[in-house]
């Protein structure tokens, strides 16, 4: 069997997206889709355009051409606020944390809990943070220090908690394990499986081919801003995928 195994309306469809920076086509007429409960890997060399493509969905960039559909409806995403309104959460490679603020302030940044008078309810935010961190990373204790004082893994868990807390339906993870040790990488892998079971759709940008083979259902490969092809990970070998990434060679199963 080959071709997209999913049927019905995709959770997200990016159709024919193009974006250029000063004459260089960073993304050139690329389409990808994502179904609920599915992990789609986005692969390619540095500069292949995967991060740029996904930033059109997270609202960090504006596409020049193309359409974005959420649950079959065409939407405009002009800034990160719009993306959040569609339950799209992003974990950036840089983690996008304000280093001078504590975990709770970062988790709720831009969506603070406020009291009846409209003032910050720090106590409730910290209590909520303790709750979700207890689930994601039970060893986490540093609630009252700036996140600059946290280890890479602890910072990562804050970034993940932020995405998970707000009931994301669509999760974008840009190299979530790049800065992590083996134990923490395992933790993220388990989390991805868990979120998948809950029916989230996840875009995973990843360089580690083994992680892709382990975690992803499908993989879309990009090269020089263009889409090489998409494969069902169960039907190909890692060499097939490497061939797509390095040489842009499409195996017969690809579509």
């Amino acid at each position: 069997m080959s071709g997209n195994p999913n049927t019905g309306t995709p959770l997200v469809e990016l159709r024919d997206i193009s974006i250029a920076f000063g004459g260089i086509k960073a993304v050139d007429h690329v389409s990808v889709d994502l179904y609920p409960g599915e992990v789609v890997g986005l692969l390619g060399h540095n500069g292949a355009g995967k991060s740029t493509l996904i930033k059109c969905l997270s609202g960090a960039y504006q596409k020049d051409a193309g359409d974005i559909f959420i649950n079959g409806e065409r939407v405009e995403i002009e800034n990160p606020r719009d993306a959040r309104a569609y339950n799209i959460e992003t974990i950036y490679q840089t983690l996008a944390l304000a280093d001078n603020l504590d975990a709770a302030s970062n988790l709720f940044l831009g969506r603070e809990l406020v009291s009846a008078g409209g003032f910050l309810d720090d106590a409730r935010m910290e209590a909520e943070t303790r709750k979700i961190m207890g689930r994601l990373n039970p060893n986490f204790r540093k609630f009252n220090v700036p996140v600059s004082a946290l280890s890479g893994g602890q910072r990562q868990s804050v970034a993940i908690a932020r995405a998970v807390y707000f009931n994301a339906k669509i999760l974008i993870m840009d190299e979530p394990t790049a800065a992590l040790g083996p134990h923490e990488t395992q933790m993220v892998a388990e989390l991805i499986q868990e979120l998948k079971r809950q029916g989230l759709g996840i875009f995973l940008i990843e360089h580690d081919i083994h992680a892709v083979m382990d975690l992803c259902d499908r993989a879309v490969v990009m090269k020089n801003g263009q889409r090489v092809g998409c494969v069902n990970v169960g039907e190909v070998t890692d060499d097939d995928i490497l061939g797509m990434i390095i040489m842009g060679k499409k195996p017969p199963q690809a579509y």
Partner: peptide
């Protein structure tokens, strides 16, 4: 404070 700590993160947080 967030803008001062990390302007990009603040922007991405909406």
């Amino acid at each position: 404070l967030a803008i001062g700590g990390n302007p990009d993160a603040a922007e991405l947080a909406g």
